[in-house]
């Protein structure tokens, strides 16, 4: 959509904000013991105050009450809704979204407040409005808008007994090819693993040694200068002859940082990474583990070892000495 089209679309959807979703809806049944008992059985929530009239009478409740979570159930449409959905204002709003490509819908969250217990004989009426529509959001599911409806529940005396906010995301579904691709990746480990280094001519020897538990440091055989990360030529004497030494992994923290966000699959957060000054003189970037990150100091002595950090990955890690 161009900015002008987006503006026109947003004007259309925002015109719905504050509108009633339809006339107040009185529940098909008044609060009653049979429905309470069925609910309690299905939910496995058979408190005496829901199911045992005699017991309930002896409690502070003074008699049977309905499970608070049933609040929404009292005014639900029932099965006919599945075949013939209500053409209410909310449906009309969703139609506007659908017509502009926002065909995806996802219930994201709901919150409910309960003002008093409902008892058999109470009559529940639901009053629903389109309460808010967010600004446009880029979500993991795609570009979309969050719509919040607010339902206020009243009793036979017009007193409020509870309130519910229900939030849905209407979004443009991301390319459906993505789903097809991910379904074919059945050879990947069940738990995500770390992203490993690409291996090429100039670095595969180093990673192969790491796989075997050793951290090597490249050494120029002409002038003996150590270098890391590895490179094909010595910057001091331009020799292309080299060998390597094994690091003792004694070192100190030259700098460090702790990553909190974004959280990338395969890593534990907070994730602390240090630039380690090795006793041999080169530096190595690696995780610092088993320490409260707020207590790490530059200059702190650390000792490294090469460990299996997940199903597929061997890496050097450092701990305070």
């Amino acid at each position: 959509m161009t900015p002008e089209e987006t503006k026109a679309f947003e004007e259309k959807i925002h015109a719905f904000v504050g509108r009633e979703n339809g006339p107040p809806k009185r529940g098909n049944d008044d609060v009653n013991e049979a429905m309470i008992r069925h609910w309690a059985e299905v939910m496995g929530d058979e408190l005496g105050t829901y199911t045992d009239a005699e017991y309930a009478a002896g409690t502070g409740k003074g008699g049977l009450i309905a499970p608070p979570a049933m609040l929404q159930a009292w005014s639900m449409e029932g099965y006919p809704m599945a075949e013939n959905p209500a053409q209410d204002i909310q449906r009309q709003l969703h139609n506007v979204f659908d017509a502009h490509g926002f065909t995806g819908v996802l219930g994201t969250n709901t919150s409910t407040e309960f003002f008093r217990d409902l008892k058999p004989g109470d009559q529940v009426t639901a009053h629903c409005i389109i309460d808010t529509i967010s600004e446009q959001k880029a979500t993991g599911r795609g570009i979309g808008y969050f719509i919040e409806t607010l339902t206020t529940y009243t009793d036979q005396n017009g007193e409020e007994v509870g309130k519910q906010v229900f939030r849905v995301l209407k979004f443009i579904p991301a390319d459906s090819n993505d789903a097809a691709d991910s379904s074919t990746e059945d050879d990947s480990p069940s738990v995500p693993t770390r992203i490993t280094s690409p291996r090429g001519h100039d670095n595969s020897w180093w990673w192969k040694a790491c796989d075997e538990g050793k951290i090597l440091i490249q050494r120029c055989t002409s002038c003996q200068t150590l270098r890391h990360p590895p490179r094909p030529m010595c910057g001091e004497c331009q020799s292309i002859e080299w060998d390597s030494i094994e690091s003792t992994l004694d070192g100190e923290v030259y700098s460090f940082t702790t990553l909190h966000y974004p959280k990338i699959p395969g890593y534990q957060y907070p994730n602390t990474v240090g630039v380690i000054q090795l006793s041999e003189g080169t530096r190595l970037v690696a995780n610092i583990v088993d320490i409260d990150y707020e207590t790490i100091k530059i200059g702190m002595k650390v000792k490294g070892s090469v460990e299996q950090v997940d199903e597929k990955t061997m890496l050097p890690v450092f701990r305070p000495e």
Partner: peptide
């Protein structure tokens, strides 16, 4: 590749 495995 020197930084991805540690998460940096």
């Amino acid at each position: 590749g020197w930084y991805m495995p540690s998460g940096l």
